[in-house]
Amino acid sequence: MTFNDDAKYSGKGVRKSGRRTGLAVGGGGLGLVAIVLLSQLLGVDLTGLVGGGTAGTSQSEDTALTNCDTGADANVDVECRVGFTRDSLEDYWSEQAPAMGIAYVSPTINLFAGSVDTGCGGATSAVGPFYCPADQQIYLDTAFYDELRTQFGATAGPLSQLYVVGHEWGHHIQNLAGTFATADTSQTGPASDAVRLEVQADCFAGAWLGAAAQTTDASGTPLLDPITDAQVADALNAASAIGDDRIQEKTQGQVNPETWTHGSGEMRQKWFQTGYSNGAEACDTFALADTEL
């Protein structure tokens, strides 16, 4: 997906964290028990990333993105791409969420390298991108995009990079909607609430991307060019590559559906396509029978 060269960046909603030297446990964090629950909910293993020590100290101050003025910058710079992705997501969800009866509040995207202190405790880049409900921030080390290629075997082109951010934004929408509060994440498996949360976030990402070419900057200039079939295939490739079955086969040599927390690659592709074709209103994965997922 290509950003419109003439689109202007808002300069809002993205921050770069100073590199941290420690991992936070207290000081406003949720602590180990909550990190275990968050790991189950979001499908990322944060438990090994909360350890001794106090809140980490910054070696540099948090900053906003710089040199990200136009869509042309986003087409060549990965951090600028995240900034413009944020603007498109914000334009879409600021209207779509209220239409679904959700009181909308904007999240913040926090770009970090190495390690970071969050409202959910300390984390490192090893967890991959994640959303923290406690501070309503999306955390991303852009090095993850390289890992999509080298570790997960995904093509990881520009649209798949946008999909990753859109998925985490989908978790923010779930948080605002109260879905996190009502989901039972104590179980795993293809029909578990944990999987329903993940594939719904995929569906929300697809819904946004289906409408992304209509999103605009503050002056009404389109942010993105229309999506091509090849770019959709790139996003679907990423969704499949990070399915539970693909990861289990790669790391364990066998697939155990009863332990799934994200859903299979096929499920993730299906729900991305459902959102892309039918919009966010078609993403109620909790209303379906087990066999319909």
Score class of each variant (00 low, 15 high):
97 A>H: 05
97 A>P: 02
98 P>T: 08
99 A>S: 15
99 A>K: 12
99 A>T: 09
99 A>M: 11
101 G>Q: 04
101 G>N: 02
102 I>W: 05
103 A>F: 08
103 A>Q: 14
103 A>G: 03
104 Y>F: 13
106 S>V: 12
107 P>K: 08
108 T>N: 10
108 T>D: 07
109 I>C: 03
112 F>E: 01
112 F>R: 00
112 F>N: 00
113 A>H: 14
113 A>F: 14
113 A>M: 13
113 A>R: 15
115 S>V: 02
115 S>W: 08
115 S>R: 14
116 V>T: 11
116 V>I: 13
116 V>C: 02
117 D>C: 03
117 D>T: 10
120 C>W: 08
120 C>K: 05
121 G>L: 09
122 G>I: 05
123 A>G: 04
124 T>K: 11
124 T>D: 10
124 T>P: 06
124 T>A: 06
125 S>K: 06
125 S>G: 13
126 A>N: 13
127 V>E: 11
127 V>C: 13
127 V>A: 15
128 G>E: 12
129 P>D: 09
132 C>N: 04
133 P>S: 06
133 P>R: 01
133 P>Y: 06
134 A>L: 07
135 D>R: 11
135 D>V: 05
136 Q>V: 08
137 Q>A: 07
137 Q>L: 04
137 Q>M: 14
138 I>V: 12
141 D>C: 09
142 T>V: 13
143 A>M: 07
143 A>Q: 13
143 A>E: 12
143 A>K: 12
143 A>L: 12
144 F>R: 11
144 F>V: 12
146 D>Y: 13
147 E>V: 14
147 E>F: 15
148 L>T: 04
149 R>A: 12
149 R>V: 10
149 R>K: 15
151 Q>E: 12
152 F>I: 02
152 F>E: 09
152 F>R: 13
154 A>S: 14
154 A>T: 00
154 A>W: 09
154 A>K: 07
155 T>Q: 14
156 A>I: 04
156 A>T: 04
157 G>F: 07
157 G>M: 05
158 P>L: 05
158 P>D: 01
158 P>N: 06
159 L>W: 01
160 S>D: 06
160 S>L: 06
160 S>C: 01
161 Q>M: 07
161 Q>E: 07
162 L>Y: 13
163 Y>F: 15
164 V>K: 05
165 V>G: 01
166 G>K: 04
167 H>Y: 08
167 H>L: 04
168 E>G: 10
169 W>C: 01
170 G>A: 06
170 G>M: 00
170 G>S: 03
171 H>G: 00
171 H>Y: 04
172 H>R: 02
173 I>A: 00
174 Q>H: 03
175 N>A: 09
175 N>L: 03
176 L>R: 00
176 L>Q: 05
176 L>D: 00
176 L>Y: 08
178 G>Q: 03
178 G>A: 04
179 T>R: 08
179 T>H: 05
183 A>L: 01
183 A>E: 03
184 D>P: 00
